[in-house]
């Protein structure tokens, strides 16, 4: 049994892993970032990419080496060395991955707490989803409301409180990196601090029926003055059946259950197919 060229194998692995990592890190995988959560998440992703590159490199180098070194010549009918295992090696390749994934879990936990940290001055926006439209309410601004489009001031933490009125929908703004399902009957929450002025798209990412693909809304992040101006222009008169707090919505749902119509007359049209391309 010849000794393996350990040094060469390790160097090859390191080299391949480094090359893959470097190439992979060139790409801006998640696209534009527009919220504070993007920072830690993107860093976590980069960390994961580096780890993964090396895992991939280890396997590829080992596989490639074995194939080059021990591929049989035609006609060779012999057997390999009867090695049944190697306890030390087996312990190593149990413990090291365990350590890596536990570290990854811990790191993820830290990031998770970081991005979900609520500040005392956070504002609240209510999100109402239904097949296949979005409505937004501003409970701190006299329950003003808006359909198919919402604005938030830049650099201001926003707590989105989400309600679904028929089936499950999901709230996702890719540039914010945050996604949360809107579930009938409960209020889910997402904490987001937009930090880049711009116009983005809100995408529904939970299959909700035929209009799922087109269930989108416009997201505008703008300086506070512009936001205030926009807010002032909104209608404060809430239609009778559009309620802007979660408890109100559920209460009404319960009252309406006999009539089987829910809050579906909030006046929002199904967003049209063009909406898909608007970002």
């Amino acid at each position: 049994m010849t000794r393996l060229p350990y040094l060469k194998l390790v160097l090859a692995t390191l080299a391949l892993g480094t090359v893959i990592s470097v190439v992979m890190l060139q790409v801006d995988w998640f696209g534009d970032a527009a919220a504070t959560a993007a920072g830690p998440i993107d860093t976590l992703m980069e960390f994961t990419i580096v780890i993964s590159s090396f895992v991939f490199a280890i396997v590829c180098v080992a596989l490639g080496y074995a194939l080059v070194k021990w591929r049989v010549k035609p006609g060779d009918e012999g057997d390999g060395l009867p090695i049944h295992g190697n306890t030390r090696l087996e312990i190593i390749w149990t413990l090291i991955p365990t350590a890596i994934v536990l570290f990854a879990a811990g790191y993820s936990w830290v990031v998770m707490n970081d991005i979900e940290d609520k500040q005392p001055d956070a504002m609240t926006v209510n999100v109402y989803s239904q097949q296949f439209a979005w409505t937004f309410g501003y409970p701190e601004a006299g329950n003003k409301w808006s359909e198919g489009e919402f604005h938030v001031p830049v650099d201001q933490q926003v707590i989105f409180k989400m309600h679904a009125q028929d089936v499950i929908h999901s709230f996702w703004v890719p540039e914010w990196r945050i996604k949360k399902d809107n579930v009938p009957g409960i209020t889910t929450e997402a904490v987001i601090t937009p930090n880049e002025v711009g116009t983005y798209q809100l995408i529904c990412t939970e299959l909700c029926g035929a209009g799922h693909a087109t269930m989108r809304a416009i997201v505008v992040v703008e300086p506070r003055e512009d936001y205030e101006k926009w807010l002032a222009g909104l209608d404060g008169e809430v239609p009778e059946d559009l309620l802007l707090t979660a408890d109100q919505a559920i209460e009404l749902q319960k009252q309406l259950q006999g009539t089987e119509q829910g809050i579906d007359s909030s006046g929002v049209d199904e967003t049209s197919a063009e909406n898909v391309d608007q970002s």
Binding site: A62, L63, A66, W70, G80, I83, E90, T94
Partner: peptide, 18 residues
């Protein structure tokens, strides 16, 4: 991972028929 590494270990010092 244990499975993947053990398959690689199986190939080491073998006579690999591809």
């Amino acid at each position: 991972g244990i499975k993947i590494f053990s398959w690689l270990g199986t190939m080491f010092y073998g006579k690999i028929h591809t």
